[in-house]
Design a protein around this nucleic acid. Sequence first.
DNA 1: GAATCAAGTTCCGGAATATGGAAGATTCTT
DNA 2: AAGAATCTTCCATATTCCGGAACTTGATTC
Lengths: 276, 276
Amino acid sequence: MERNRPVSDQPSRLTGSSPLLRMFGLLELIASKDHLVSLQTLAQETGLPKPTLHRMLASFVAEGLLIRQNDRRLYGTGPRLRDFAESLLMNATQHGARHAVLLALVEELGETCNITALSGSEVLYLDRVETNEPLRFHLSPGSRVPVHCSASGKLLLGQLPAETRRSLLMHAPLEQYTDATITDVAQLDAEVEKCGQQGYAIDNEEFIYGLVCFAVLVPGGHGRSRQCIAVQGPSFRLQPSDGDRVLPALRRAAEALRSIEVEGRAMGLAQSEASA
Amino acid sequence: MERNRPVSDQPSRLTGSSPLLRMFGLLELIASKDHLVSLQTLAQETGLPKPTLHRMLASFVAEGLLIRQNDRRLYGTGPRLRDFAESLLMNATQHGARHAVLLALVEELGETCNITALSGSEVLYLDRVETNEPLRFHLSPGSRVPVHCSASGKLLLGQLPAETRRSLLMHAPLEQYTDATITDVAQLDAEVEKCGQQGYAIDNEEFIYGLVCFAVLVPGGHGRSRQCIAVQGPSFRLQPSDGDRVLPALRRAAEALRSIEVEGRAMGLAQSEASA
DNA sequence: GAATCAAGTTCCGGAATATGGAAGATTCTT
DNA sequence: AAGAATCTTCCATATTCCGGAACTTGATTC
């Protein structure tokens, strides 16, 4: 159902399906300001009723996440949020190691690279490092692309049980983005099969004109993989025939990612056993 | 109060009056781990029922706050959380006071100074004040430099658990920027150790020819520090032998930053008690 | 390779929480 | 001191969350 949205400006709506996520969105909004904010300001920017905002802010203040300053009129981030942020960054070494692999790959190939995974019926970008080339495609990390017209998507589809794959493709219409987009299920099945055989996939301008992409699977613990690493670039710098140049590097990076995953798993297990 | 639990104790429930705050507590718990966690582990540590946790985690994953790795068995922080943390630290409300400390330091030393933190596998500039000298290196706040060839990076690496540090360096490309860049892991380990011992670090043209940098840690609340304050300058104005001149000032500034932090914390507590 | 076991996932009725319009306080403004 | 704007409290309603029980998946053992 739709929430009241009487005001027609551009209230940077807090996107969030549940109240819980909406509250996190509020924190994000406050954290993104380089100055303190008032209730009134927040009401205007979010479009939320003031009593609602007041209640949210009050509970954050009670928990030490936010603090009130200037005679209690303005809100800013509190010590607990700073602890959280610092702790997060210091401990995001999984990110760190993974990010480092991407950095090295971009350095070597000279083009933007991504780590991707399947999320629902779309391909999600887990992390990304952009090339320094002045001309490049910009897709923000956390964004999503359709499965049927991305190199990663075609590989990840191949890792799904046939049954699951079928029902997934049924629900998501195969939209035609360019002339090269595969929109026929049978044809897509054949393409997925082919990619699985050869161990890599190419997106040859199937999603965006001028965008070419190579992807390989990150080896999973046992049999199935759920992540890809991919390189993308404009078609005049990266072409389908460049496989010999980019695939070895991609495979090396994929192997590096696998070893990170294994370490992470080992630590995770050690942790759970430690509390027995 | 202490927030990080070193090892498992009783089902130490997530402190939080409302479900909303409890969910934030869950994020804090995950962010405080230097490794990925499983649903089972979280269930044990929080005492929450598994279905409840599963639902919470699923919604976080759907929002991009968390990501799942290792065959979807383990949870870790996602890109959106990292953005949040960085944005928060760069805009922190005591920014004003923090900036003032930097200004005073630059005034005293006559060279550009920065406040830095670790983010993933790189060093992030949280804030920065440039000298008025006509010749200076330009790096904007928000930009990043490699850990292995920056004074801040070498100090912050020393604050990580050995295991974590090893894993990070293993996968980070120790790129050679200048003749002085340390690219050998063992050698870097020794250097990090040495910096930790002496309480400061020097970057002696290890990243950019002609750029020398001194850094000290900002004392943290819980033993470990997560931020540095540093001064940098061209090698003909700032030399490794200038420690006696710059280190006392740096230490004073670091102490000033710590006290700002403590004040903020005290205010936060006062606020939260007022509503108890 | 079938049995066993542990971890992860789904279901759904009941319980607890969030919602926001209206109205009452508290400032700031003139 | 009246007027205006913002902040705060109230509370009936509707939405959301909760978690025991049951089911599925995947790993381990015999």
